[in-house]
Structures are given as structure tokens and as C-alpha cells.
Write a protein that binds this DNA or RNA. Structure first.
Lengths: 195, 195
DNA sequence: TTTACGAAATAACAAAAGATAATAAATGAC
DNA sequence: GTCATTTATTATCTTTTGTTATTTCGTAAA
């Protein structure tokens, strides 16, 4: 657990040792295999899932029964069922591991309690909320204003490693297209490079 | 301004009179005409715009030069340039009035200052953040999982009045389609009703 | 090395959405 | 109210995307 503590310290330098210890005391470490489901649509779950290593995705099922990837989280990124966490409602997302993954599962109820008496954790709570909001707004903007091809390029440039690690079927649904369409996008870009 | 105070009290019952007075003291009332721009892409603006009456929208311009409506705000809803407000970056959105609109413009810097010494306002800050986050996540989900037609139906059912008030060109870009396509969606639905 | 399996690329066709233009309807100015 | 301008609908055509099936590729096990 010491390794995890120093890792959290790297990510959030403003946290002192005491608050990191509190954070770890209300968290659980969990290892899951590729394909495992951490949280299912309909579950009441207010945990924040911080990826230590590996890869997670969240998805929803549309009216045709197809999975649509909503978010992808690699090392140091987090996934939570926001509506369940903030409103106590059943989750609309399912969280699944794309790779064997180690996750720090933070109990949000206990965390919020701890944050009321610890300024450091209160700051973390606020910052976590902010970064979540900025991410959501950013992704909303990308989906609104960019074409699928532009979204692919952006994703590739921001997460070059994930292009290899995320199976195309998940990446396609994350970008809002079919796998066939994503293949076409890739070959179009490859051709442009030559020409 | 008294009318506004009582209105804010209705929206946020947990606010006491003192905090409402503080809130109003750091805010400005502004009236704009249809078509007016409140905030332009590139501006540094950390205000929260609370619509008292009327209708606002925010939009971004894509690589083809077309406007894409990102959000629509009617009475008691708010719009802010999140990345400018939270990160001090130039705004990526433009805010424009769809109708003659009265807006309470809340200075976010002053508000955050006030929130550090007033528990009521701190609560409002937290709640505002939460509702913003829930809205963004919800909209992300809608864009990911619903087809344009399903999004239209959802919008119509949630905001029946706005179907009339929002010009189709804005609604179409909000739903992620062209005006022609939105027209087709409407006529398709109308036919289904008959058959 | 071969075989078997899953993932990705490709091809052919169908369906949906975009582009453009023409018409109809609604809005605003006078 | 009339006229002018904007906005929405409809029709036609083009382009893009989805669907389905087939082929190719890559990985891993036998």
C-alpha cells in the first residue's frame, strides 16, 4: 500500500501524509481481469474508481441493444457513476475492464464525511469535482463540434498509446461510429499521409 | 431587485436572506435583446449567467465554420464558460440571446471569495457544481446513446415550450443534425401519430 | 509450423443524412 | 394590412454511413 500512497502523492502533491492515509483507509484495492464487470447498470454505487494500472471503460446500452462506450480510463484516471454518486440513483453506466486492471476503489460516502473535517481532503473533493466537470464539458464539446474523423485524430494525438490498447470495437463506439466506419477513417488518413 | 431576491429564494430555499443579499451585491442585472452576444469565444470570462426570463444559448464554431449549439438555457437555468471559469482560459463558447432576456450575472471570483466565509454560499457553490456536472454527464449520455430522433423526442417531452421558442436552426445543431434533417424527423413523427 | 480463433480491413449493397434549391409559412418593419 | 425578410418544409440529388458478408491479418495454442 506504500507504493500506492506515494503514487497518490505524485498525482495530488497538496495532500499531506495524514490525508493520504485517511484516503487509503476508506478505500479498497481491487484487481480485475480483462472483461470483468466492476459495476453494472442499475447498481447503486457511489464509488470512485481510480485506475492504478490497466484500462477501464464505461458503457451504456442503447435502444437497439448495442453498447456505446461513454468513457475510457487509463492509469491515474477515474470513472464513477455520477448520477448514482451524486443523486443516489441506479447507475446508467456499466464499468468493465479492457485489460487486467488494478483499481483503487474510493468510498464516496466515507470520503465526503472525511472531507468535512479534513481541509486537505475537502480540497481534493473540490478539485476532483472540477476536473470531472472540465472533462465532461470538454468531451461534450468534442462530440458537438468535431467530426468522427477529427475526433479520432484528436484521440490519437492525446492518447497515442490507447490506439493500440483499446479494441477498435470500443474505440469506434466511443467516437460515435461503427467499426467499419472507423476502419475507413483510418485508411483515409493513411492515404492522405502518402499523397 | 427585491423581486429577484424572492425568486432566488424560491430556487434555492436553503439560502438565507443575508446570503441572498451578498449574492446580489456581487451580481449585475443585465437586459439583452434577441441576437445579442453576451460573451464571445476567446473572451476571458468567469461569470455565471443565470437567466431570469428569456432564452440564451451557447455555441461553438466547427472547422467548417458552422455554429453548433452546445447548450440552451431558459428561465432559472444558467450558462457559463466552464473552462474560462475554472481554468482562466479563453472561452471556447459564445453566449447569445435567443429572446429578449434578463440575466443575473454572477461574478464567480467574488462569489468564490464570499463562499469561503459564508457557509450558505459555500453550499450553493457546491450544489451549483454538482448540478452542472450532472447536467453535463446527462447530456453526454444523451448524445452518446440516443439517435437524433430519440433526442428530439426527449427534448420535446422535457421542454415542450422550447420546441416553440427555439428556432429550428439552433435546435437542429443542438440535436446534432441539419435543419432539413430535423424537419424530416418531425414529419416522420407526425406520420407515425396518424398511422 | 500448422491450425484455430478473434479482430480488423475490405467489398457490395442498402439506408440515412447532407447539400442545394424551390416552395411555403411565419415574422417583422413600415 | 402589405411587403420584405427570415425561417421552415419539401423535393431531388449526392455523399456518407451503416449493414452484412467475406477476406486478411495477427496472436496464441496445439
Amino acid at each position: 500500500m506504500d507504493q500506492i500512497a506515494s503514487r497518490i502523492h505524485d498525482s495530488f502533491p497538496f495532500l499531506n501524509i495524514e490525508s493520504i492515509e485517511i484516503l487509503l483507509s476508506i478505500s479498497k484495492l481491487r484487481k480485475v481481469e480483462k472483461g470483468d464487470i466492476l459495476l453494472k447498470e442499475g447498481d447503486f454505487n457511489s464509488n470512485v474508481h481510480l485506475v492504478l494500472n490497466g484500462l477501464l471503460r464505461s458503457y451504456v446500452i442503447n435502444s437497439s441493444g448495442d453498447e456505446r462506450t461513454v468513457s475510457i480510463a487509463k492509469e491515474n484516471m477515474r470513472i464513477a457513476a455520477i448520477n448514482s454518486l451524486l443523486h443516489g440513483l441506479p447507475s446508467i453506466i456499466t464499468i468493465q475492464a479492457i485489460e487486467p486492471t488494478e483499481i483503487l476503489i474510493i468510498n464516496s460516502g466515507k470520503f465526503q464525511e472525511a472531507a468535512t473535517v479534513n481541509r486537505n481532503l475537502a480540497l481534493l473533493e473540490k478539485q476532483g469535482m472540477r476536473s470531472y466537470l472540465v472533462d465532461a464539458t470538454e468531451r461534450l464539446y468534442l462530440l458537438t463540434v468535431l467530426s468522427p474523423e477529427e475526433r479520432f485524430i484528436r484521440f490519437r494525438d492525446e492518447y497515442p498509446d490507447l490506439i493500440q490498447r483499446v479494441p477498435q470495437i470500443y474505440l469506434a463506439s466511443y467516437l460515435g461510429v461503427t467499426t467499419v466506419s472507423l476502419s475507413r477513417i483510418k485508411s483515409r488518413i493513411a492515404k492522405q499521409r502518402l499523397g
